[in-house]
Amino acid sequence: MNDIKDICVRKLSKPRQDMEKSNAMWNKRAREFRKISSNAGNDQVFDLFRAKAELKGRSVIDIGCGAGRYLKRLLDEGALAEGLEPSVEMVRQARDHLSQSGYDGTSIVIHSAAFQDFAPEKKYDYVFISNSPVISYYENYPRIIDLARRGIFISSWLKIKDLFLEKIAAGLGRAPHTHGGCDIVYFMNLLLADGYYPDFWTNVSHREE
């Protein structure tokens, strides 16, 4: 098990994320993600979390809350939810989305900071992470563990295969840029190596547009 942990630590030991570059990209995409948040219907990710966790009255930190998609759903479930989001434009869109949903968007706590700079004075019952690069850096691993009192929920793409994108890339003589990867697997194996026993659930979905 120590060998597995060493491999996982090595795979996730990367240079610090360039937050200036990352925030510039997410600031540009904030309105796009606001539209997704506003049109979000049933969601298997959140439904699974809701089935596993007792949310009403519990404190939850949504790491990488983006435009507020899951932050709203957490609040809808009665959770004492807070967000963490380094993109200033994403935070603005999240507050606006919450205001349009009937919440006082100005009073909802959204910490405008990168996770590596986040220094809360308290722990949370649950840590919720959905498709966030924070799990891709080993320096964040012990901090994520230390932040949760009751549990950690992580969702992440393993792989997205886009046949249309592949066809375009082949025509340009380039490799397609896809989302996902093995970082979530390395993270889960670190948990196992440290004596935790996480539930691991995968879903394969096909969509045609």
Rank of each mutant, 00 (worst) to 15 (best):
H206F: 14
D47R: 08
Q44L: 14
D194Q: 10
L84M: 03
R73N: 03
K122P: 00
L190V: 04
N131Y: 09
I7T: 11
S13K: 07
R73V: 04
I168Y: 05
A114Q: 08
I36H: 10
F164T: 14
A175I: 11
Q17E: 14
G105N: 08
L98I: 08
N131C: 05
L190G: 02
P142D: 11
Y103S: 09
N189T: 04
G68R: 05
L163Q: 11
I168W: 04
Y138S: 08
D47N: 13
M188N: 10
K56R: 13
E82T: 05
I144M: 07
D104M: 02
Q17F: 04
L158H: 09
K21S: 12
M90H: 10
G171C: 06
Y141E: 08
P198T: 14
A30V: 00
L163W: 11
R16D: 15
S107Y: 04
M25H: 08
W157S: 09
D62F: 00
L71W: 05
M188K: 11
N2A: 11
Y186R: 00
Q93T: 02
Q17K: 15
A79Q: 10
V88S: 09
D62C: 01
T202E: 15
A79C: 09
R58D: 11
A170N: 10
F164Y: 14
V185D: 10
G83S: 11
E89C: 02
N39Y: 04
S38Q: 15
V60H: 09
